[in-house]
């Protein structure tokens, strides 16, 4: 049991008539990167606000580093770092003033924990006299992460740190998280980008306040129990329509330049699909069987 950093059992939360989280239970292991993967409105932020002691759960128990989320909230606040989805630093303080402020609030100094934030903070240090409000999106994100880390937390909560961030900056951000993990920090991160699931040790796929699946990304994709075809022809829009009208179609979803297809019958052969598409006058037909990714699994779980 000592292996767990966070233990969540039967947690629910409602806002008026709307139940944001429905009886969720799971554990987060020490020093793992745990991903909450789901769209807006799934309940990710509510859960993170409960875990960071900012909201009280309606039901259930949560234990964080052997402390009770309700009774020991003051102690918990000292050992967690939190980066909210919305930029929440002081816009009219400089970069350095913000960092200093958070260090002081937690009874420490920039110097004392500089080693932990060095990789991240050194990238914005040349601008340390600039007001936080005048930073670019990527720099704001780095400052927010530095401030969340300045008191050397045991557990770090990141609420959609990469939303609206371009593909290059997203990649850099995940590299930073991997480094923090190596320093012994447990990380719980939420994201609407399905492709980021593969960067986590374990993930929970969450939709409408419920967890649809929870496991390593590898195990989740292995559980996809249908043969998945990846199909491409010259005319993508027409292909989408034609596959939707194919006699035993189970699912048809666009994935970039390809269309992912599953059939109700397991006996379907690649040549059957090719013949059908030839009949429909498609050219440059490509059909292959592929392994499902997290997004395939998420879509399939949403249908159930």
């Amino acid at each position: 049991m000592e292996n767990y950093s966070i233990k969540i059992s039967n947690v629910s939360k409602s806002y008026g008539d709307v139940s944001a989280i429905k009886n969720i239970s799971f554990n987060v292991k020490k020093t793992e990167i745990f991903g909450l993967i789901g769209p807006d409105g799934a309940g990710k932020s509510t859960l993170i606000r409960i875990l960071t002691t900012l909201l009280l759960p309606k039901t259930g128990n949560i234990n964080l580093e052997n402390l009770d989320i309700v009774k020991d909230f003051k102690k918990i606040r000292h050992i967690i770092g939190y980066m909210p989805g919305k930029f929440s630093l002081y816009q009219d303080l400089t970069v350095e003033e913000n960092l200093n402020f958070f260090a002081t609030v937690f009874g420490t100094t920039i110097k004392e924990n500089y080693e932990l934030i060095k990789d991240i903070y050194s990238q914005i240090e040349p601008f340390k006299n600039r007001k936080a409000g005048d930073l670019s999106g990527g720099m704001k994100q780095k400052l927010a992460l530095s401030c969340a880390l300045i008191h050397k937390p045991k557990v770090l909560f990141l609420d959609e740190p990469t939303t609206g961030v371009d593909a290059v900056s997203r990649k850099e951000f995940w590299e930073m998280l991997k480094k923090l993990q190596k320093k012994g920090i447990t990380i719980l991160v939420s994201t609407p980008y399905m492709d980021e699931a593969s960067l986590c040790d374990r993930v929970a796929l969450i939709q409408n306040g419920e967890i649809m699946s929870i496991d390593t990304p590898e195990n989740i994709t292995n559980q996809f129990n249908k043969t998945l075809y990846s199909i491409k022809t010259e005319n993508k829009y027409q292909l989408l329509q034609d596959l939707k009208n194919y006699k035993n179609q189970n699912s048809v979803n666009a994935f970039g330049q390809f269309i992912h297809y599953t059939d109700k019958l397991e006996k379907l052969k690649i040549d059957d699909i090719k013949d059908y598409l030839k009949e429909k006058k498609h050219t440059n037909i490509e059909v292959k069987i592929i392994k499902a990714n997290i997004e395939d699994c998420f879509i399939e779980l949403m249908r159930e």
């Binding site: 769209p39 939709q207 829009y237 997004e295």
Partner: peptide, 16 residues
Amino acid sequence: GGVDPVTRREFWNLIY
């Protein structure tokens, strides 16, 4: 941004 994967595809159907 932030839309679930099924709705995202329905959205692109509207675009097409």
